[in-house]
Design a binder for these strands. Structure first.
Lengths: 344, 344
DNA sequence: ATCGCGCGAGAGAGCGCTCTCACGCCGGAC
DNA sequence: GTCCGGCGTGAGAGCGCTCTCTCGCGCGAT
């Protein structure tokens, strides 16, 4: 309020005056459009420097209808499931990509229905050029909201519905899970249990599918559902042990649940990996490297997934700008990689 | 881009026309200023609803010079130290407070000097009304940058310089540390070591001070410097054990370092808390509750600190708006609380 | 009945920018 | 030498909103 340095912010008009050109020409130079002769352009650039001119984004947005800003919408209740570092890393990737393309990141955290309405209004308000949607549950209304608002979106994680028009970025959950189990099988394990995530999330379902791919016809009691928390992992581990005392391996659908499982095993004096091998999923370093023993897990490049989401969205927002505009945009499934540590 | 629903966004003009009033009156109603007679106001409100009118923020900003947006600037390199959950929680608090006051959160992550320049330009560009600065190191240029840009700021964590004009929010690091050590002393521990954080951060220094308050004249070798990582905590623990084999307690300046320390103790077969008691700091639930044994620690209300930062900034931005405007704004030190779990 | 006052409403001027359009100038073709 | 075409530049019209200023109306006081 009444800040001097904000008050004397030079306008394009001032730059033009100083450079002895019209506002239109100054604008052309500032926006890098060609067709301005070198000496003039140079004069304008000097004036910009001398005055410390910075374009007023509001004025620009008002006429161009572009915000150069993207919303990242995170549905809070679900955030807990995906342990926090996951989100943080993804946001980091998004931020980098957005920055590289001169876009801003507006963070919208929601909790509860009232917030959805607020987000809907915000998106409809045309404040952002696009939105990145996170941690949706099965019948989440957020994508519909965004669509109604006419805001291009990209979703983090495969949504439960299929729709050619819906763009998302996810890792190869199924393939990764398959790899994990295959690795256990290759290591001679035969009685392999699975700690699944909540089955109303596609990631959990896909990982379970992968487990089944490698181990068809598994007794359903070898599969226990957790909730992506350590507690859930611990409970699931206990259940597994109960149904199958001679278990020799477990594949958990997340590192965090695996850490809960490890805890139960340690408490009961069961040696990992000697008695039971454990494989996680995610490779969240702060978890997987610091469990005891360190966790063998399936790595997904979380930050890169973030970058990809941002890139995809930006291309959707302005098809011409992106890379040499390929054909239709499509969802992306990133590969996973087995990272062997000590737990299996 | 050419989106239909964005294209027909109704303007205030349209609302006014539908309600049969002037644009000025419509504006008055939309902005909740009084002095519009009830029936007219009602007509305008109905028109807004029917048309689904949402004010164009860019146009509004252009004239009011207010953005209703706040930047959260996080200096990346340091982020690793404060383990991620810390930041996430704080941002959550900020987001809630901002949302409640109809402000947006623009997230700016930086890494390296080049990014600082970019952030400087952004702040100078007047895109936001204020900035929240995080994880600064000792001679960080960010605050100066923000000041030059004329953007009101609030800093997360006590900065190393003192300056009446600088507002920050931090927890009572010193008092918390003192409480931790006092608790250990009360439990009969006598040979207490300290795993400090990097001493170029005020939080580490303050916690060390608190340690010394409770245990004046401690042999310097009872203090080992870590770096807020589990590895650092582990190394520091090992060093402590070396210099003082009959240690009976450790106060670590962070939960994350404590987790590293616990690991070393477990490896060496030293029982916690029987042989050595361990107290952490932060109470990052995902860490403290899931170490083995669960960590006794000093709790700081991270989310609340985030809220306070936001509130402070908003009051600084528009002194009139805030609560019944108290006198001068001042920095805030929040209390800490000892949380007893199993490790001490 | 006249005057003045105050409140509610409208008219209109920008905020700083982009972009279309018109214009002037220079070079090449006739 | 005249004409045309095209490129480089300037003039000006808004984008959608807020806010000041003015105006008109109805009321109480004289």
């Amino acid at each position: 309020m009444s800040d001097p340095s904000l008050a004397h912010r030079p306008t394009l008009e001032a730059v033009a005056a100083r450079a002895g050109v019209s506002r239109a020409t100054a604008s052309r130079v500032v926006n890098g459009s060609d067709g301005v002769r070198a000496p003039l352009a140079e004069r304008v650039r000097r004036a910009v420097d001398e005055l410390g001119y910075v374009p007023n984004q509001a004025a620009r947005t008002l006429v161009t209808r572009r915000n150069d800003a993207v919303a990242v919408v995170v549905a809070e209740p679900e955030t807990r499931f995906f342990s926090d570092p996951f989100l943080t890393q993804q946001v980091r990737g998004i931020s980098k990509e957005l920055t590289a393309r001169d876009n801003q990141l507006v963070l919208l955290l929601t909790e509860g229905a009232a917030d959805y309405e607020r987000v809907g209004r915000y998106l409809a308000g045309g404040h952002v050029d696009g939105a990145l949607l996170f941690s949706l549950h099965d019948d989440d209304t957020l994508p519909a909201l965004a669509r109604r608002a006419g805001v291009p979106t990209v979703i983090g994680g495969r949504p439960s519905w299929s729709d050619a028009d819906t763009l998302y970025v996810d890792c190869d959950n199924r393939g990764g899970a398959r790899d994990a189990v295959t690795y256990l099988l290759d290591g001679g394990r035969r009685r392999i249990g699975h700690i699944a995530g909540p089955l109303d999330q596609t990631a959990s379902v896909d990982r379970l599918e992968g487990f089944r791919d490698a181990l068809p016809g598994t007794d359903p009691r070898m599969i226990a559902e957790g909730d992506f928390t350590p507690e859930g992992g611990a409970r699931a581990m206990a259940a597994l042990l109960e149904h199958c005392p001679d278990l020799d391996a477990v594949f958990a659908a997340s590192d965090v649940m695996a850490s809960g499982a490890l805890r139960v095993l340690r408490t009961r004096g069961i040696k990992v990996p000697e008695d039971i091998a454990v494989v996680g999923f995610d490779d969240i370093v702060s978890v997987a490297e610091w469990t005891d023993p360190p966790l063998t897990t399936i790595r997904q490049d979380i930050e890169e997934m973030g970058r990809m989401m941002a890139r995809l969205l930006l291309r959707r927002v302005s098809p011409s700008a992106g890379d040499a505009d390929g054909p239709a945009l499509s969802s992306i499934i990133t590969p996973t990689r087995l990272v062997v540590r000590a737990s299996a």
